[in-house]
Amino acid sequence: MMNHEINKAFRSRLEKGSAILMPGAANALAARVIDQLGFEAVYISGAGLTNTNLGMPDLGFVSLPEIAQHTSAIRNSTDLPIVADADTGFGNALNVQHTVRTLERAGASAIQLEDQVNPKRCGHFAGKDVVDIVEARSRIKAAVDARQDPNFMIVARTDACATQGFDAAIERAEAFVEDGADITFIEAPRTIEHIREIPNRLSGTPQLVNLVVGGSTPIVDFSELDEMGFGLVLYANVALQGALKGMHDALSMLRDEGRMDESGPVASFEVRQNAVNKTHYDEMEVRYSTN
Rank of each mutant, 00 (worst) to 15 (best):
M1H: 10
H4S: 13
E5Y: 00
I6V: 15
N7D: 08
N7E: 06
N7P: 00
K8Y: 06
R11P: 07
R11N: 10
L14K: 02
G17E: 04
G17C: 06
S18Y: 10
S18H: 13
L21E: 11
L21P: 04
A26P: 00
A28I: 06
A28T: 13
A30F: 08
A31T: 08
I34M: 02
L37N: 10
G38E: 07
V42M: 13
A47Q: 08
G48S: 05
L49C: 14
N51V: 12
T52Y: 12
L54W: 04
M56I: 03
L59Y: 09
L59C: 04
S63F: 02
S63P: 02
E66W: 04
E66G: 04
A73L: 00
I74K: 01
T78C: 02
P81E: 12
P81D: 09
V83R: 07
A86R: 08
G89N: 06
F90W: 11
F90Q: 06
N92T: 08
N92I: 11
A93F: 14
Q97P: 02
H98A: 13
T99N: 10
R101D: 05
R101C: 08
R105W: 03
A106G: 04
A108H: 03
A110G: 05
A110D: 07
L113D: 08
E114T: 07
K120L: 13
R121I: 12
G123Y: 08
G123C: 03
I133T: 14
A136F: 11
K141T: 15
A143V: 10
A143S: 12
P150D: 11
F152I: 04
F152K: 05
I154H: 05
V155S: 03
A156C: 05
D159N: 08
T163K: 15
T163R: 14
Q164E: 15
F166T: 05
A168R: 05
A169T: 00
A175T: 12
E178R: 11
G180W: 15
D182T: 01
I183R: 02
I186F: 01
T191C: 08
E197Y: 01
I198F: 01
I198K: 12
P199S: 07
R201C: 01
T205M: 02
V209R: 10
N210A: 04
V212R: 02
V212H: 07
G214L: 00
G215H: 01
S216N: 13
I219T: 11
I219K: 07
V220K: 04
D221T: 09
L225A: 05
D226N: 15
E227I: 00
F230N: 14
G231M: 06
L232R: 04
Y235T: 11
N237S: 01
V238Y: 13
L240A: 11
G242K: 01
L244Y: 08
L244M: 15
L244E: 11
K245E: 09
L251V: 01
S252V: 00
M253Q: 07
L254M: 13
D256E: 15
G258H: 12
G258L: 14
M260W: 00
E262D: 10
V266E: 11
A267W: 13
A267H: 09
E270F: 09
R272Q: 13
R272K: 09
Q273I: 00
N274P: 01
A275R: 04
N277T: 14
R287F: 13
T290L: 06
T290G: 06
N291I: 07
